[in-house]
């Protein structure tokens, strides 16, 4: 692949890796939180909803700075994690955390909508046939919301690929370590003669985003068909 310089290539691979892990790790939490918001009745539901959506509304740089304060080696959680040998700030793992948090609201929204679309009468019916609440979820709710989960995951992946503000604030822009695709574009635009590199990465960005949307549409259409039994 000599049409990309090693630095450009590194940025693309790192972004794919970061987005992949950000999506995979946040998915179970995304399903759990979406389920709690869609079906749960508990005090503090509004607060949880607000908290989940906060990264969508706040300036990304604020999210990044708050991450640094909390998960930095001096931060309350970061210090504890460091005792276990886990450091997030200025590492690619930190980029995963930043991307996951920034993408989380989109993921939860998509999954929550699909859970709300499941007829509660069906889950009630499953319970009368002997399924425990967990079995109801596994055998009825989960298969029915699969299109929503996939849509949420792909959306989150695409969002993670493009995450810039929180990432650069939390983990900086270190080539080969924390320089994701958007960070690399930003870096190339800061140096004279970097435009052609930036342009190549921009094109890759656009192509990946487009591919993500197409894949998600195709997969959810297929699953929706299967789930609806057509």
């Amino acid at each position: 692949m000599d049409w990309l310089s090693p630095q450009e290539w590194q940025a693309v691979l790192l972004s794919l890796k970061v987005s992949f892990w950000a999506t995979v790790i946040s998915l179970p939490f995304g399903v759990g939180v979406a389920y709690a918001l869609a079906r749960g009745v508990f005090p503090g539901k509004l607060l949880l909803n607000g908290l989940v959506h906060l990264p969508l509304i706040m300036p990304p740089v604020v999210t990044g700075y708050l991450l640094l304060l909390t998960f930095g080696t001096q931060g309350p959680i970061g210090a504890v994690l460091q005792d276990f040998g886990i450091v997030l700030a200025f590492r690619w793992t930190g980029a995963v955390l930043a991307a996951a948090i920034m993408a989380f609201p989109l993921m939860v929204r998509a999954i929550r909508l699909s859970i709300e679309a499941v007829d509660p009468k069906l889950t009630e019916a499953a319970a009368t046939f002997g399924a425990s609440p967990f079995q109801v979820f596994r055998t009825v709710t989960l298969p029915l919301i699969l299109p929503g989960i996939i849509a949420g995951a792909v959306l989150a992946f695409a969002k993670a690929m493009g995450e810039f503000g929180a990432t650069i604030t939390f983990v900086s822009n270190i080539p080969g370590q924390t320089q994701t695709l958007p960070s690399a574009i930003h870096a190339f635009l800061q140096v004279p003669g970097g435009e052609s590199s930036a342009m190549r990465l921009v094109l890759i960005s656009v192509a990946l985003a487009m591919a993500a949307i197409l894949v998600s549409e195709w997969v959810s259409a297929r699953i929706a068909k299967r789930v609806a039994g057509k």
Binding site: K121, A125, T128, F129
Partner: peptide, 15 residues
């Protein structure tokens, strides 16, 4: 409860 419930609208599982 070991029930067999026949609902008004069937409520068959669509998937």
């Amino acid at each position: 409860r070991r029930l067999g419930y026949i609902f008004q609208e069937g409520r068959l599982f669509p998937h």
